[in-house]
Amino acid sequence: MTILKNLGYWLGLPIVLIVVWYLATLGDVSIFVPRPLPLWEKFVSVWLGDNILSDVVPSLGRLLLALAISTVLGVALGVVIGSFRAARWFSEPMLEFLRAIPSTIMIPVLLLVIGLNDTMRTTVIVLGCLWPVLLNTITGVRSLDEVLSNTAKVYGVRGWNRVWHLVLPGASPAIMAGVRQSLAVGLILMVVSEMFASANGIGTLITNFQNRVAVPEMWSGVLLLGVVGVLLSAIFALVQKGVLKWYDGLKAAADDN
């Protein structure tokens, strides 16, 4: 019974909305309003055919590569900056400024400096995703548990060991929060960088449809990006559950007390 009820909550409103949407668009509507059935047909014919390999996969590949690069870079820089006061003072004003630049505006610059290729599109995503990871890592490193930190000092844990066994695990909840933020940013930048200039990709295809005034196809692209967004956050939730198992357990234990 509970399962049925949950299922009702999960699917109830979506089904109602889709039915209402279907009925409301039966008559004549503006060409910009999507209709459920054509939308679904286009979604299947446009995105589940050859375009998966030629456009969807390259897009997602760039996104994942950029996410990996910005995570590694952000964590490495964040550990250094967070650990040393002088490094923090040195980098803070410049970081504050660079972070404030809306990352999409860098696309024309990177177009000039790097050229029209995959490196440029990946760099755009890295430039946007780096900040959430970097800033969260700095905060995480700075707010390490003091008792643990002092204990490590007393036991002479230092250098690489300290980073590996104390700093990284201690900062990992903050780091994961940063990576989650950069997922959303990365998806935005992936689309924009491809709309601006690309040979293939989801954003390019959507722009092509725009030039052909193929509205249902454009909406199917929006639908695809929604699916990609949901899948990405679901996968991330799984990864996070694994990485932060100890932390969730600790919190649950603390709540019980």
Partner: peptide, 24 residues
């Protein structure tokens, strides 16, 4: 509880995906 699914689906759609539609 009823709006959970809808919100979770609509939220991650990057709004820049709507740029071509808005432009048209």
């Amino acid at each position: 509880r009823a709006t959970f699914t809808v919100l979770e689906f609509l939220r991650p759609i990057p709004s820049v995906a709507l740029i071509p539609i808005a432009a048209l």
